[in-house]
Write a protein that binds this DNA or RNA. Structure first.
Length: 994
RNA sequence: GCCUCGAUGGCGGAAUUGGUAGACGCGCUGGAUUCAAAAUCCAGUUUUCGCAAGGAAGUGUGGGUUCGAUUCCCACUCGAGGUACCA
């Protein structure tokens, strides 16, 4: 009986699908008795974007890990929710549509089919009955709905949560807005309740828009007129578009944003209660960028303008306020045009224009060039009363703080550089600090001087005192600032969620849940329209009829009852921000998720996915969860208790070396293509002289091309090697190239010549990211076909720690396959499946229980690589003992099931069980089998192990010492010396010093 | 620049609170089986000296703490990822 993995795996995959083995029940809904008494456990993977390239072996790594854990938890008696779905809106399908005209929905459907086929082959225990797809209208109905919920909410800072907009309207009607503490736009006009009531409906709506959690605002974007679209920062290279090389300008556009900044502090605080990797928490913390400081107002000294203006600045170092010698405004600052004096007007305008042309990215990349101009205006220092010149400079960013800084050149390097460059004053306010070389930014060790009432105070005291003074004098107030910006929520794309929004008199109106989803319209072209509108501008049936409550033809727009619909679509992260909740109740058509379902499943217990989502998906989804929590829709405000970032599996590329040589401009290569085996190539390049004088003959025996070496005019010679990727499938475990396969690969290599060594061509190897262009992609289907899914699963785990990135090398997989074969043989006697019911020996029990203990600990610690070794050791030991006993082999099959479920099921069936192994209880570890009476002590001399001595474990330290000292090898080591000290750690080690 | 992580044989990696460095697997070497190959099995495999017994060195570098350091502390080098005029 051979281990026929192909048949076994196909059979069990079919069995699981037919019997819905991994379907998770919602107890309250299903009425399935058994499950309601089980505790729940939710294991989630980050759902994939189904790309056209399909899966390579790197993709399933995290899925295998989570599947092992899910299967383990089932053995431990949990009702496990382990769903999977697709994040199926996205750019590649849209770009394919632009190129070919094929509807993205078709592309997506095809890709999903491929993905599903590939995933099924690996034997995951997903509950596919709960599958979600973000591009499915039945799913994005709820994405649209959450958007409307955000629109209908505001953030009340007093209660510190999101509330329905009606509570805000109630406050406005009763007392106006002066006392309202909300997360809202800056500079909202103040009004009384009377004024509110007298405002027009339109004005009221405009005001409310400034408070809503999703709102329209003018946002600066990278606009590319050539492509007619907005580009992300990484789509711009050197100031022009990556595709096409078109000019990119910064332009203000009306865009939807979501007010994630309202949750900045709670997003920060929440990190303390979730078990997520520290580096990931750190990057979220940094991204949120909380800084404490003060807002300070500086009066602009009125000149010809006659009007008084105030410049507000945010500073983290108000204690250095007496060091201010100038101020700098961002070129985009509103006051620039107002305060600039007539004499400076021309210079300033030219500067502003020049900076507007540069992309933000360019400005950030170019840190070294210092530029700026003087406005001609001065501000009044609030404490010293000195005149402070106001400059503009592009090192000040309009988007952070107030877009203006009080410059303290002695304490900030950028201010320092600016002051040096323009020859501005650099007053020193730090006691005993030399600032002739640069600014002094170490706040912990500074004492303030030359600063009036702050003189002699260290940082902390000075900070407290100055904030008090600022507030006392009415110059400003202490403030917490965040780096994080509100998230722009509009995309000028086709393949995304349409907004459930129409415009009445230019004001956005939400479409009611009852009419959702608003389905993506058909368009003829997926490109932006000629007049620069997003792709949905091409749709002809894209208007909202408020009477019929349906989408109708654009021709019917009368702006009375039929209105235009929003043309933007939602960003990629919209659909992924709450999908984990939807899995709990995916077929519910009435609610986003039912109370029963969400109260039962609560939250994700284990979430596995890549760290590249640290400041994207993983931040936005936490924000949405907190919002949904505020609205009472979910019971917890952090949705994932534990998160693990799996590492990347890189490829091991193979290289061949193409040799070109000649004299002067003359290239022999014009005639021939020669590939040189790596060791020879290295010898030629590294030890050229040796080659020419000694090894020449060896090589020239094979190929008559080394005339090159014979020439004496060495200064004219040249020779170079170009490494070229060879497909990894042509290269075996010993790095030998399959020359025939390589020749047949490409026509240009058909007549290639090879310089071999011992008849072999040895390739170079390099670890690189897996990618088509590097010919190092390994397809999991192929691995399953050749080695089986169980081998693939175990090998991926065996590669190394889950979180670590590690290179794939297909050759290694033979090790786990032969392990599985060896395991299989334990259950076979005389070519028949048979186990004995004999009582196992002490030794056999010890092997089993040692394995149970280790594997259980490993799974709990997500140390899957070490449990694969443990299995191998156990099978090696059991094989050595020729163990064939049911009492050992039955629990072994269960232990292995999370890792290699197919073979385990088959063994279980052959052990005469009639149900799936997947729900069987996990074997219980019993310490009694591991109790030892003897210990083989390592005996060290000065920390170096010299020999071992077997001693009983129950003897005293004194007895151990006597036994060791009496040992002949001890005396041999000491050579008559008296030991200075003997250290004995019972059960561990003996160390003799001397 | 800043933040984070990492560095152990030819390769992937192991060593749970400081206690036998190199488990397990790949690769390699030799052998058995075979007409041959595949498959399987056995032995060896950190480097170095030695026929061997045995010795010496050894976890990126340099220090330190300790009876004892891959593990803890300090300084540094290199690599990977993230982030960046954030006031």
């Amino acid at each position: 009986m051979e281990y026929n993995f192909r048949k076994i795996e196909a059979d069990w995959q079919k069995y699981w699908a037919e019997n819905q083995t991994f379907k998770a029940e919602n107890p309250a809904l299903s009425g399935v008795e058994g499950n309601s008494t089980k505790p729940k456990y939710y294991v989630l993977d980050m759902f994939p974007y189904p790309s056209g390239a399909g899966l390579h072996v790197g993709h399933p790594l995290g899925y295998i890990a989570s599947d092992i854990y899910a299967r383990y938890k089932r053995h431990k008696g949990f009702n496990v929710l382990h769903p999977q779905g697709y994040d199926s809106f996205g750019l590649p399908a849209e770009q394919y549509a632009i190129q070919t005209g094929q509807h993205p929905a078709i592309t997506t459907e095809e890709n999903i089919k491929t993905y599903r086929k590939q995933l099924d082959k690996i034997g995951f225990s997903f509950d596919w009955s709960r599958e979600v797809r973000t591009s499915d209208p039945n799913y994005y109905k709820w994405t649209q709905w959450i958007f409307t919920q955000l629109f209908n909410s505001w953030y009340n800072k007093t209660t510190d949560k999101a509330e329905d907009i009606s509570t805000l309207i109630a406050i406005f009607s009763s007392e106006g807005n002066s006392e309202v503490k909300a997360a809202c736009d800056a500079d909202i006009e103040k009004f009384s309740s009377e004024e509110w009531k007298n405002f027009s409906e339109e004005k009221q709506q405009k005001i409310l828009l400034q408070y809503r959690l999703t709102f329209l605002s003018e946002t600066e974007v990278n606009w590319c007129p050539g492509l007619g679209t907005v580009l992300a920062n990484d789509e711009i290279v050197n100031g022009v578009s990556e595709r096409g090389g078109h000019q990119v300008i910064r332009k203000k556009m009306m865009q939807w944003s979501t007010r994630i900044t309202a949750y900045a502090q709670r997003l920060l605080d929440g990190l303390a209660k979730i078990d997520w990797p520290q580096p990931l928490k750190d990057s979220q913390t940094y991204w949120i960028g909380r800084s404490e400081g003060a807002m300070v107002s500086f009066d602009v000294i009125a000149s010809e303008t006659k009007q008084s203006h105030k410049i507000e600045v945010f500073t983290t170092r108000p204690d250095t306020i007496f060091g201010v010698s100038f101020m700098t405004l961002a070129p985009e600052h509103d006051l620039v045009s107002i305060i600039t004096t007539p004499e400076q007007k021309e210079t300033v305008e030219a500067y502003v224009k020049a900076t507007a042309k540069r992309s933000e990215l360019e400005r950030m990349a170019d840190v070294k060039t210092i530029s700026g101009v003087f406005t001609g205006a001065y501000a009044l220092h609030p404490f010293s009363g000195k005149k402070v010149p106001i400059w503009i400079g592009d090192y000040v960013l309009a988007g952070y703080g107030t877009g203006a800084v009080m410059a303290v050149p002695c304490g900030d390097q950028r201010d320092y550089d600016f002051a040096k460059h323009f020859n501005l004053e650099i007053p020193n306010i730090f006691e005993g600090i030399d600032i002739s070389e640069g600014a002094y930014a170490d706040k912990e060790n500074s004492v303030i001087t030359n600063s009036d009432f702050l003189n002699g105070l260290p940082y902390k005291k000075a900070l407290k005192r100055i904030i008090h003074e600022i507030e006392q004098e009415g110059f400003g107030y202490g403030k917490v600032n965040y780096r994080m910006r509100d998230a722009v929520f509009s995309r000028q794309r086709y393949w995304g969620e349409p907004f459930p929004v129409y415009y009445k008199n230019g004001l956005p109106q939400m479409i009611d849940l009852k009419q959702l989803p608003i389905v993506l319209p058909e368009v003829e072209k997926y490109l932006p329209t000629e007049d620069g509108k997003p792709p949905l501008g091409n749709a002809t049936i894209w208007a909202w009829d408020t009477i019929k409550l349906e989408v109708v033809s654009n021709q019917l727009i009368d702006n009375k009852t039929v209105f235009p619909l929003e043309l933007n679509t939602m960003p990629g992260w919209a659909g992924s921000s709450s999908y984990f909740n939807r899995y709990m109740d995916p077929e519910n058509t009435e609610e986003f998720v039912s109370k029963e379902a969400v109260n039962y499943w609560q939250d994700v217990d284990l979430y596995i996915g890549g760290s590249e989502h640290a400041t994207g998906h993983l931040l936005y989804s936490r924000f949405w969860q907190k919002f949904l929590f505020d609205k009472g829709l979910v019971p917890v405000d952090e949705y994932a208790k534990k998160l693990i970032n799996q590492g990347m599996i890189t490829g091991t590329s193979a290289y061949v070396y193409r040799w070109e040589f000649g004299k002067g401009n003359d290239s022999e290569m014009a005639k021939k293509t020669i590939f040189v085996s790596k060791p020879i190539m290295e010898r030629i390049t590294k030890e050229r002289s040796t080659i020419e004088h000694t090894d020449k003959k060896v090589i020239s025996d094979q190929v008559d091309l080394l005339t090159f070496c014979d020439t004496n005019s060495s200064e004219k010679e040249w020779s170079s090697f170009t490494p070229i990727h060879a497909d990894v499938s042509f290269v075996n475990a010993s790095d030998e190239l399959d020359i025939e396969a390589f020749k047949n690969w490409r026509t240009e290599y058909k007549d290639a010549e090879f310089i071999l060594e011992d008849g072999k061509y040895i390739c170079g190897r390099e670890v690189e990211k897996m990618s088509k262009s590097k010919y190092n992609v390994v397809n999991p289907d192929q691995i399953c076909e050749e080695y089986g899914a169980d081998s693939l699963r175990m090998f991926e785990m065996f590669l190394g720690p889950l979180e670590q990135s590690k290179p794939w090398k297909t050759s290694g997989i033979s090790g786990v396959l032969s392990f599985l074969k060896k395991l299989w043989k334990l259950y076979i006697v005389e070519n028949k499946f048979s186990v004995s019911d004999e009582e196992p020996s002490k030794e056999e029990f010890k092997i089993l229980h040692k394995t149970i203990k280790k594997v259980e600990e490993d799974i709990e610690n997500f140390s899957f690589n070490t449990s694969v070794s443990t299995f191998m050791i156990a099978v090696n030991e059991l094989t050595a003992l020729k163990c064939n006993k049911r009492a050992i082999l039955e629990p072994m099959a269960i232990l292995l099931e999370p890792y290699a479920p197919h073979i385990s099921e088959e063994l279980w069936k052959n052990l005469r069980h009639t149900t799936s192994i997947s729900a069987v209880d996990f074997p219980v570890f019993e310490p009694k089998y591991l109790v030892e009476s003897m210990k083989e002590y390592p005996v060290s001399f000065n920390g170096k192990m010299r020999f071992k001595i077997a001693l009983p474990l129950d003897i005293s330290v004194k007895e151990i010492e006597d036994a060791v000292m009496a040992h002949e090898k001890t005396q041999e080591q000491l050579k008559g010396r008296e030991p200075k000290k003997v250290i004995i750690v019972p059960g561990k080690i003996i160390n003799i010093v001397g």
